[in-house]
Design a protein around this nucleic acid. Structure first.
Lengths: 329, 329
DNA sequence: TTGTATGCGTTATCAG
DNA sequence: CTGATAACGCATACAA
């Protein structure tokens, strides 16, 4: 069922059908009706591939995340789909598996599949990697630092973690652990660690490297494991800053398994404000970045760059607020 | 940068380039090397739209879910992406918003965007709806009943809920509430309710309609709300079957807010085994369907139907097991 | 206001 | 084993 078929059915040329389909001016009302009727009867649909081949645009933007099977990225993806939809874009989601190769592949795929642009939530790729695709509309979302080469919508990593840590101090905590990843490079983990250190310094508390608990990955399992190590310590900890809410959920469970009560024995604060945070027992205090704002900004930036390829890269940081809940009361 | 350019660079015809790109037999080794080198130098990529226009296949399958911002569908989507990737398909995710219109739109979109097939996790569309697209490869995933018109990979709704309810009885519960949706039609809610009734009957317990707590939607908020109504009752409840783990999480939190202890005062069991279930406090007992199996089956069915359009529709039910955790100990 | 010719980049077919 | 040619379905430019 092609435009030609519809044209024959309506007794017009296929160009007229094209004009009707694309709502172009210059078609008389009676002809338009006849064509619409022919379309309805025949069940005709435009062939997007043919249109794309001609126009060079697919109307699809890619969204590459480490893992949609995680509340945070699921939540973010949901916002991105919304925003993109409002601008007439479809979203294709790609999983990178939190690996630099997966992230590089996502860029290659995105071009191969001819997405109009890509929103990449990179956690491994960084400025040292050889990214030669800076001409293609890519927006970096999240944590990594690319030295200003790409549009970048960042999380309030330092500011947020600093506020979280300061909050723990203000609640009376003095031996505050941080549960996070390794400290190489410039990324989410190190940025958040900086915020932690800054708050301790500002509040006049010393910093004890033994209170840095490293994770194998950003999972609940890893958080649980860190909680075991925390509970094993001789000198108790009275506050924990978890690098994400997902990790915090594992910590919460791990502490419960060791009979440590939150917040009575240990106060705990996370980062992200995932949907489940306020339903945990106890409910989880957390740094709540404005996910809707991030998604909107990212989509706006890709859309904008598709239209204006040479605009200089923009750097943005999402606003946040501290959600104080039971885990730090 | 097109095939013709590469062909000129390599001193061959574009057909030969096509043959190399598609790993087709019948290209001599020296020519193949020359072409590969030309591709490398020029940074050529195939134009997927052109290929699609010619071949009629996009290599993309759509996955329509109510909401990826939910642990269950995020988890499922992750599995589907994996499985599809292994078969050389890309996945485009669409959100339906748990509405019949959204679900119908997803089908239309899927065809317009020329996906090779669609996996539709329908929660509202049902057999009475006018679905004229049965010729296009659609696999229904989940709950709704379509009277055998589509390939269907179902959850073990009745069997699972029956086992869950029986387990509560075996743990000594006698006044068991069910927290779920309204009881119209044949869908996840009613199927699971049937399982609940079947277990009560089998165990010789009466059924009290007052113990049916209806939800506005399948959210944690709604679960929390149901828990308030449960706590408000004069005659206490000693067991709760929640229609999903997400709802159960809300119930758990709602009971905690009312000072009811799980499992001491009330035992609670969910459905789905979302990633967070075993990290809740207390950890959540649940019906654990084999998500990997479901995803694999669904992808297999679409792939198969793309190849064999006229095969009769198949009906499958996912295997499950009961995960017994603290909430029902 | 409507129609005709042409080409987008690829692949199927068939000839060399 | 390699190449020429003709589609795939649509939209641009221009003619009528």
């Amino acid at each position: 069922m092609t435009m030609s078929d519809v044209a024959r059915l309506a007794g017009v040329s296929k160009m007229t059908v094209s004009n009707v389909v694309n709502n172009r001016a210059g078609v008389s009302e009676p002809v338009r009706r006849r064509v619409m009727e022919a379309i309805r009867q025949s069940g005709y649909r435009v062939n997007v591939s043919a249109r794309t081949l001609r126009s060079g645009r697919t109307g699809v933007i890619g969204l590459a995340v480490p893992d949609i099977d995680s509340p945070y990225f699921g939540h973010l993806a949901s916002h991105v789909i919304d925003e993109a939809g409002q601008r007439g874009f479809h979203v294709a989601i790609e999983e990178t598996g939190a690996a630099a190769t997966g992230e590089a592949d996502a860029i290659a795929h995105s071009r191969t599949l001819q997405f109009d642009g890509l929103i990449l939530s990179a956690v491994e790729l960084n400025r040292r990697d050889d990214l030669t695709d800076a001409d293609y509309p890519i927006v970096m979302l999240g944590e990594q630092d690319f030295g200003g080469r790409f549009d970048h919508v960042a999380m309030p990593n330092e500011e947020g973690t600093k506020a979280a840590t300061a909050h723990l101090v203000d609640q009376g905590c003095s031996r505050i652990a941080i549960v996070t990843g390794g400290l190489e490079g410039v990324n989410m983990v190190t940025r958040r660690h900086e915020g932690y250190l800054a708050a301790l310094a500002e509040r006049g508390l010393g910093h004890d490297p033994a209170l840095h608990f490293a994770l194998a990955d950003m999972s609940m399992e890893a958080g649980w494991d860190a909680a075991q190590r925390i509970a094993d310590r001789d000198r108790p900890v009275d506050g924990v800053v978890a690098v994400t809410d997902t990790v915090a959920q594992g910590v919460l469970r791990g502490l419960a398994d060791r009979g440590l009560r939150v917040p009575d024995d240990v106060r705990l604060i996370g980062f992200d404000d995932i949907p489940g945070a306020k339903f945990m027992v106890p409910s989880l205090s957390t740094v709540a970045p404005d996910h809707g704002w991030m998604a909107a900004k990212a989509v706006e930036l890709v859309a904008d760059r598709i239209h204006t390829p040479l605009r200089p890269a923009g750097q943005y940081v999402a606003p946040f607020k501290l959600e104080i809940r039971e885990s730090t009361r």
